[in-house]
Write a protein that binds this DNA or RNA. Structure first.
Length: 193
DNA sequence: CCCTGATTCGC
DNA sequence: GCGAATCAGG
């Protein structure tokens, strides 16, 4: 694949939107994220908003270092973009630790305790239920950075475990649970009873 | 280990 | 110009 005009355009657009190189590569197809990054650099559009690791790399004494063409260019770019990207708003995260005063919540399903306004997409819920069957049911100690931390069951019971499935990168939950934890923004629509 | 972007350099 | 390999941070 080559960098046609519109492919470059897509690249610029997505990069500008803060999409990751891999996502862009995936979107474009036929190229790897490296290719995308390389292109980004050649195009001059590099630093954007805060993206994980940006503008930190410095001199790297690689083994092959032998190019005397290295020359520092005091050409600073006063370009400064505010770049304030709004991310998705998180809905009510599930609460698992309840002292269980007098009445323990039904539990079993990770339905958020918030009584008001909480109509999670039936699809999302269905998926969650499916996933829970395949859940690894790990304990608190088994939780790692990439294990879904969605609690299932009653903490006061032996029937309590965490999903444990691979998280959806960055998020604390697996794909399915992210689906119910982070609602796009509209999940409740007046139910006509 | 997963991901991210940055850089180098042979092509 | 291109991008795999490599590096470096999270």
């Amino acid at each position: 694949m080559s960098w046609t005009d519109d492919r470059v355009e897509t690249l610029k657009k997505m990069w500008g939107e803060g999409q990751s190189a891999s996502q862009i590569a995936k979107e474009l197809g036929g190229v790897t994220r490296n290719a995308v990054i390389g292109k980004v650099h050649r195009l001059g559009l590099s630093n954007r908003a805060t993206s994980g690791t940006a503008a930190k790399a410095e001199a790297k004494p690689k083994a092959k270092a032998a190019a005397p063409k290295a020359a520092a260019k005091p050409k600073a770019a006063p370009e400064e973009k505010p770049a304030v990207i709004m991310q998705t708003q998180a809905a009510a995260p599930p609460k698992s630790t309840l002292p269980a005063r007098k009445q323990i919540i039904p539990a079993g399903q990770p339905l958020p305790p918030q009584p008001s306004a909480n109509e999670i997409s039936p699809e999302a819920l269905a998926k969650v239920n499916e996933v829970e069957k395949k859940a690894k049911k790990i304990g608190l100690m088994e939780l790692t950075e990439r294990t879904c931390k969605w609690p299932v069951g009653d903490p006061a019971t032996e029937d309590f475990w965490f999903c444990g499935l691979p998280v959806k990168q960055g998020k604390p939950y697996c794909e399915a649970h992210v689906g119910v934890a982070f609602q796009p923004m509209s999940s409740r629509r007046d139910r006509r009873r």
